[in-house]
């Protein structure tokens, strides 16, 4: 079933509550949602800066996560560090092509894609590029939200291996890279969450 689009006149001052999606009238700087009584902040500047700060923090952790080993194999007392890329290459050489592709996508490709998409959305919010449509941006945003959790795969794999492989001759330990990686995922998710979807409306109006 389709809807009829409303006329523009009385719609300018309506905003939806980010918590319960009730339609509210935007009366000033800070209003309380009439349904869930949560404060709806209208100071979109602060959200914008939070998102930038989070995504830059995440990028720094991404670099650290790629330099230091994420997993340490300790065979007969000889520790052997494994970085993310190193692990992917090792899997590829062993002929585990599907797993190598999954790990590469989840740990290398998806984080990079998320950084690019978040930065694109944030730049577009200030200076809308020519021909950028509100709907395309909304779709990009929700795509970013959707793929986010999947970069956790490598962290869980490390956690499982650390939990399971625990014998005298062979030991698997987590590396500094794992800490940096989990913080990277955490800050990227926070960055995505602090982007106000209602900002996307602004970019269209300004364009």
């Amino acid at each position: 079933m389709k809807f009829t689009k409303m006329k523009k006149i009385d719609t300018e001052k309506l905003i939806s509550c980010p918590y319960c999606e009730a339609v509210n009238i935007d009366e000033g700087k800070s209003i309380y949602c009439r349904r869930c009584k949560t404060k709806i902040t209208n100071t979109q500047e602060s959200n914008f800066h939070t998102a930038w700060a989070m995504v830059i923090t995440a990028m720094i952790f991404y670099i650290i996560a790629n330099i230091y080993p994420i997993l340490i194999f300790d065979k007969f007392g000889h520790p052997n560090g494994n970085t993310i890329i190193g692990g992917v290459i090792a899997l590829w050489e062993e002929g585990e092509y599907p797993i190598a592709v999954i790990i590469f996508t989840a740990s290398v490709f998806i984080p990079l894609l998320k950084f690019i998409l978040i930065i694109y959305i944030l730049i577009n919010y200030k200076k809308p590029q020519k021909g950028s449509k509100k709907i395309d941006q909304a779709k990009l945003y929700h795509f970013t939200e959707l793929i986010g959790p999947w970069s956790m795969i490598d962290v869980f794999v490390v956690a499982i291996l650390v939990g399971v492989v625990h014998v005298h001759s062979i030991q698997i330990k987590a590396g500094i890279g794992a800490t940096a990686f989990v913080l990277m995922v955490f800050f990227t998710m926070l960055s995505t969450l602090s982007i106000d979807v209602r900002l996307l409306k602004e970019s269209k109006d300004a364009a």
Partner: peptide
Amino acid sequence: LDHLIICRHCQTLQKKVTLKENEVAKCSEC
């Protein structure tokens, strides 16, 4: 205001309709 809904994906404002059993309301824009 309760008869209105703003699409959470594309922020388009539209009127709500009453649905029957197993019906789904979709956004007119996206």
